[in-house]
Amino acid sequence: MKQLDVQILHQSYLLTCPEGHEERLLEAVSRVNDTMARIRDAGKVRSRERVAVLAALNMAFDIVTAERAPAPVAEPVEQPDEAEEDPEAADAWAQAMIQQQADAQRIVALLERLDQALETDAQLL
């Protein structure tokens, strides 16, 4: 294990990480420091503890959003073989594809609305 002395909002922390992971830890420290500084500099939150909680929530929200984002479809889904011979199956397949696209658009729109709403979350406390 390796120990690193880092600074987050001008406070020193001695952190331990596995050998070879120092660069990743320093990147994580940089992200936390930047997020906390952005929240603190917004002006309404001064408590280091509240700034840290808001930063953790912002970062966790970003992770959850990325995990739940619809995966881009590299290739269109092929129409099933039975749909070529059966007009009802072809229609059902087409309706399913339209619904899937509409659902994906609604999810993206909802995520954008959540991002906009959370941009000002530092002002809530």
Rank of each mutant, 00 (worst) to 15 (best):
Q7K: 07
L125A: 11
P72W: 05
I107S: 05
L57V: 12
E23T: 09
Q116M: 03
A109T: 09
E78D: 13
D34Y: 00
L125G: 15
A92Y: 13
E67V: 08
D86M: 02
A74L: 11
A71F: 08
D86R: 08
Q7C: 03
D5E: 09
D115Y: 07
S47P: 14
T120P: 01
V108L: 11
R48Q: 11
E19K: 13
Q95H: 13
S30K: 13
A90E: 09
T120N: 04
Q79Y: 13
V53A: 10
R38K: 12
Q3I: 09
R113D: 05
I63R: 11
T16I: 10
M1I: 12
R48N: 14
D34C: 02
N33A: 04
M97P: 08
I98H: 14
R38P: 00
E49V: 15
A52E: 07
V77Y: 10
V51Q: 02
L54T: 02
D41T: 06
A66S: 07
Y13S: 09
K2H: 14
Y13D: 11
H21W: 09
C17P: 05
Q7L: 04
Q11C: 03
K44P: 03
T16L: 11
A109M: 10
A104F: 08
D81Y: 11
A109W: 00
A74I: 09
A42E: 01
A117M: 04
E67Y: 12
S47H: 14
D5S: 15
R31T: 01
P18T: 05
Q3V: 14
D86G: 03
Q95C: 03
L25V: 06
Q79A: 12
L54W: 04
D62N: 07
D115I: 03
L25Q: 06
D91V: 05
E27R: 14
M97H: 13
E23A: 11
E78M: 13
N58Q: 09
F61E: 00
A37Q: 13
D5L: 14
V73S: 12
E85V: 00
A74E: 05
A52L: 12
Q79G: 11
Q101N: 13
A104R: 13
A94Q: 15
C17G: 06
L125R: 09
E27C: 05
T120S: 02
L111W: 00
D91C: 11
N33L: 01
R50T: 06
R50C: 10
P80G: 08
T120Y: 00
V32M: 03
E22D: 06
L125D: 05
